[in-house]
């Protein structure tokens, strides 16, 4: 009982695989951008003085962190359609992933904000900076720099987790794989190829975040030490 692998029929469909990979990256890109924004606002809300907003942000984070992503996707999918709203599978996937990563980013950003000492804020206030200026220059950027590795991991994880959106037929990489293996009956080969493509996508993302980090954090670039 020898193992016979034939990749040719899978690799023949490289065009579809490439399309799927592109869509996966696109989904991840949208979710990361929107999720990062939600995360920053969520963290501000969660730490802010308004109890109602803080509770709402807390409930959002706990709700997302304690339910499976697939269930969240179905909730968005069926929730929107029961409201009579018709969206493409891609849109639903993007929304669900954004909501998911936004919650995790809220938690990470909160840790980042918490790591800024009160003395830093007082020093900035003492120099006459307004509340908004203090937040921007002395809280937000150092906080992001500090949690940047955690954010990177979370965002790569999100890209990998986006494979479950194949369940609502978003045409991303895993959905393409499902389709190819059902057509070629070369399941093992298909998923080996797809796994390798995910590895490459992860690498691309990490490289991208590393380069972005170099651009955003000149101190890190010059000294190489954590903040």
């Amino acid at each position: 009982m020898g193992l016979e692998l034939d990749f040719s029929v899978v690799l023949d469909r490289w065009q579809s695989l490439l399309d799927g990979a592109a869509l996966t990256l696109e989904l991840a890109f949208i979710a990361v951008i929107c999720g990062a924004l939600i995360g920053a606002l969520g963290a501000i809300g969660r730490r802010g003085g308004n109890v109602l907003i803080a509770r709402l942000c807390g409930a959002y984070v706990e709700g997302i962190r304690n339910t499976p992503l697939l269930v969240q996707i179905f909730l968005v999918y069926f929730g929107l359609s029961s409201l009579g709203l018709k969206f493409s599978a891609f849109t639903v996937a993007a929304v669900a992933l954004t909501i998911n990563v936004g919650a995790y980013t809220t938690e990470i950003m909160r840790a980042g904000f918490d790591s800024i000492h009160k003395g830093q804020i007082e020093a900035a206030e003492g120099l006459g900076l307004s509340k908004a200026q203090v937040y921007w220059h002395v809280v937000l950027w150092p906080a992001i720099e500090r949690v940047y590795p955690a954010l990177t991991s979370q965002f790569v994880l999100l890209m990998l987790a986006s494979s479950v959106t194949s369940q609502i037929s978003a045409e991303e990489l895993t959905a393409v794989a499902n389709y190819i293996q059902s057509e070629t009956y070369r399941s093992f080969e298909t998923y080996i190829v797809v796994a390798l493509i995910y590895v490459v996508l992860s690498f691309i993302m990490r490289l991208g975040f590393w380069l972005l980090g170099l651009a955003l954090f000149p101190r890190r670039r010059r000294l190489g030490t954590p903040l």
Binding site: H117, G119, Q120, E122, A123, A124, G126, H137, V138, W141, P142, E145, F217, R219, L227
Partner: peptide
């Protein structure tokens, strides 16, 4: 008014 604290509080990322 300028104020200087015991723990310098320079902004570490700048």
């Amino acid at each position: 008014v300028g104020i200087v604290f015991q723990s310098y509080n320079l902004f570490p990322h700048l």
